[in-house]
Nucleic acid binder design. Sequence first.
DNA 1: CGAAACCGTCAAGTCGACTTGAGATTCTAG
DNA 2: CTAGAATCTCAAGTCGACTTGACGGTTTCG
Lengths: 150, 150
Amino acid sequence: MLDTELAIGEVSERSGLAVSAIRFYEDRGLITSDRTAGGQRRFRRDVLRRLAFIQAAQRVGLTLDDIGAAMAGLPADSGPTGPQWKELSAAWRPMLDERIALLEALRDQLDHCIGCGCLSLERCRLNNPGDRAAGLGAGPRYLLGDHPPA
Amino acid sequence: MLDTELAIGEVSERSGLAVSAIRFYEDRGLITSDRTAGGQRRFRRDVLRRLAFIQAAQRVGLTLDDIGAAMAGLPADSGPTGPQWKELSAAWRPMLDERIALLEALRDQLDHCIGCGCLSLERCRLNNPGDRAAGLGAGPRYLLGDHPPA
DNA sequence: CGAAACCGTCAAGTCGACTTGAGATTCTAG
DNA sequence: CTAGAATCTCAAGTCGACTTGACGGTTTCG
């Protein structure tokens, strides 16, 4: 227990993730672990940082594949270090900004529709399929729409 | 063709949705249609408004169930009328604001982490499970997290 | 009238992200 | 040392939102 390594249950408790989810992430290669002689997982503390990172990224709407790709450039055994973290954050910033802009546009558009009573949603920019910024396509599968092919 | 009713293919083209998706929505009770003598669907024009509405709502991250519930109060055969639209929009506004706030918080937090180099993501508010606003839980299943029990 | 284009109903499949269950093994506190 | 809490693996299930496929009927245009 004073051990630096954490059992999966501890990781679960500290990260707020289900044990099954943690195993799933390991299967997907997002995190790694050592094993005890008996075969149980023991995680290095930095896995918490990775998991936190994963959770944050998911909230932004990235898929595990995206996240895995982004983390592929990081050293496998540690959380992101300074410059790497910087790089990642910089890479995601435009996407964050885009999502925010989209949500704001939606809200304002809604306000506009309320204000003018036009009810012409189908003519609103909200549904302009040609517009990259608004026409994000097919719904929830990828959250707020596409994540850049990045 | 000068007919006021639209065949499913036309609806598809005008709405940008796949024919199969439109049928799916009808199964789910989100839209309705008449049938020709031969059994083909014929949609009233206002179905376009409904579909537009559905698409907009999805982009905000609502499930079809949510959308169905919200539209349940509307007259089945027409798009939302003035006051109803107003009511709906008003109901969704707080959620939109919350989502926007979340995204902004995430972005700013990311900036902060870059700035200070603390790398202490796990201590950041981003992952505070007790905080309703930030601890939105379990990822993509419900898009950017929970939609209010509304 | 007849071919091409469109539409119908199922049932089953897909995708992402996990969860659940079964049955066996390992750890740890008393 | 032992009871019982934690873990293990692996297969299968779930959920939301659709899509795909098989197979057959309907509309429309020339």
